[in-house]
Nucleic acid binder design. Structure first.
Lengths: 114, 114
DNA sequence: AATTGAGTTGACATGCAACTCAACATTTGA
DNA sequence: TCAAATGTTGAGTTGCATGTCAACTCAATT
């Protein structure tokens, strides 16, 4: 899988903006963007990734996945539910494929749409 | 919901051991256990919660949920999957009930058992 | 050739998570 | 009752996440 830095650089260029512009809009230092793109430092916090994606007008999942981190809202929201805890433990052990996650997303929708 | 500290104290007493014994087995300082039980400090890292549960011989979900944190393995395992990322975002926004999480756990089993 | 815009780098800052350590207080059982 | 066991508290430690700042390079224009 492409590294976070490579993806970020690619998407930033697609958006046609400089590191400095992106940084300014995201409220970050431009040198930080540079280091991220070159993989000199670990990916930013998940919420920062999301902010960046909004600026670049792209879906967050790919960059988020490349960052390997879960959004704070997800952690606080799901972390306090025993049911979520065991679901997540099980899902993790099963090492689901992307197709299987898609299936689960359907199950999720069916929960309320039936 | 009961606080992490109250739950911990309750379960430790059920197991019939002292703070010092629990701490020793978990590789922690006993004063740390004391502070946890009294809510003086935030709950420990998820992996520490799991270690404690193993010593107390109880299921981890309740204490984990009271701690509000997700195990590191879950974060690194699910955080790198785009499918998991979007599933978790959706699930979080839906604010699922415990019963619904149980449903999803069944869907999970069905994925491989069919 | 000098300026300008873009990117890179190393050193440093800051805050918080997750504890430990030493001292003191309280409870309990012989 | 009183000593040992158990529990509580305040202060300190350590490491890592998440950045900033200042100084630099390099390529393209003017």
């Amino acid at each position: 899988m492409a590294s976070f830095g490579d993806l970020l650089r690619e998407e930033r260029r697609k958006a046609g903006i400089t590191q400095r512009e992106l940084a300014a809009k995201a409220g970050l230092d431009f040198s930080y963007i540079s280091k991220l793109e070159n993989g000199r430092i670990p990916p930013p916090a998940a919420d920062t990734v999301i902010a960046i994606c909004e600026i670049l007008k792209i879906q967050a999942e790919k960059l988020l996945a490349a960052s390997g981190k879960l959004p704070a809202g997800v952690q606080s929201g799901l972390g306090t539910s025993p049911g979520a805890q065991s679901f997540l433990q099980n899902a993790n052990k099963m090492n689901l494929t992307e197709a299987e996650w898609k299936e689960l997303n359907s199950s999720l929708r069916r929960l309320r749409n039936d």
